[in-house]
C-alpha cells in the first residue's frame, strides 16, 4: 500500500478530474475538469521514469544514474497538444455563449428542445396555411 502510494494518489487526481467532467453542466467547468484529468495523466507517465537517487537525464561524467527520458519526451508533446485542444474548446464555449446566451448544458438543451418544437409548429402551421391558400 505504501509502496504504491504515489500511483494511488495519481488515480485519485485522475478520477477527480473525470468526476468534474461528467457531473458539472457548466462548459468552462467541464474544461477545467478536463485539464485536471490531463495533468494527472502526465503524472501517471512521469512516475515510472523516476529512479530514486538518480538525476535528470542530462549526461555528465559525475553522475551515473539517470531518469528514463522517453516518458518526458512523450509528455512534452502531450502538454503542447493539450493546450492547443484546450484553446479550441474554449473558443467553442465562447461561440456557444454568443449563440445561446448561456454556457450551462441543461439550459442549452432546453433551448434546443423548445426551438425544435417551435420550428416543427411553424412547419405544420406553414403547411396548413399553404393548403388553405391553395383551397382558397
Amino acid at each position: 500500500m505504501i509502496a504504491h502510494f504515489s500511483q494511488i494518489a495519481t488515480i485519485f487526481l485522475l478520477v477527480a478530474g473525470l468526476y468534474v467532467v461528467i457531473a458539472r453542466g457548466n462548459m468552462v467547468k467541464k474544461l477545467i475538469g478536463l485539464s485536471l484529468f490531463q495533468t494527472s495523466v502526465y503524472l501517471l507517465y512521469i512516475l515510472p521514469g523516476k529512479v530514486l537517487g538518480g538525476t535528470a537525464p542530462i549526461l555528465d561524467a559525475s553522475f551515473a544514474v539517470y531518469a528514463n527520458p522517453l516518458p518526458h519526451v512523450l509528455i512534452l508533446t502531450a502538454i503542447v497538444v493539450g493546450i492547443a485542444t484546450l484553446a479550441l474548446g474554449l473558443t467553442l464555449v465562447v461561440r456557444i455563449k454568443e449563440a445561446y446566451g448561456t454556457i450551462e448544458e441543461d439550459e442549452i438543451l432546453a433551448r434546443d428542445g423548445s426551438k425544435e418544437s417551435v420550428t416543427d409548429k411553424v412547419k405544420i402551421a406553414g403547411n396548413k396555411t399553404g393548403r388553405g391558400g391553395n383551397g382558397a
Binding site: 537525464p57 531518469a67 518526458h72 512534452l76 502538454i79 503542447v80 493546450i83 484546450l86
Partner: peptide, 29 residues
C-alpha cells in the same frame, strides 16, 4: 521526479498560458 524539461513546460504552459486562456474565456462568458 527528475523531469526538468517537462516541469518547465508545465509551469509555462499549464500554469501560465492555459490560465490566461481560461481568464480570457471567462471574460467573454
Amino acid at each position: 521526479l527528475d523531469a526538468v524539461d517537462v516541469a518547465m513546460t508545465e509551469a509555462a504552459v499549464g500554469a501560465g498560458v492555459s490560465t490566461v486562456f481560461f481568464l480570457g474565456a471567462l471574460w467573454l462568458t
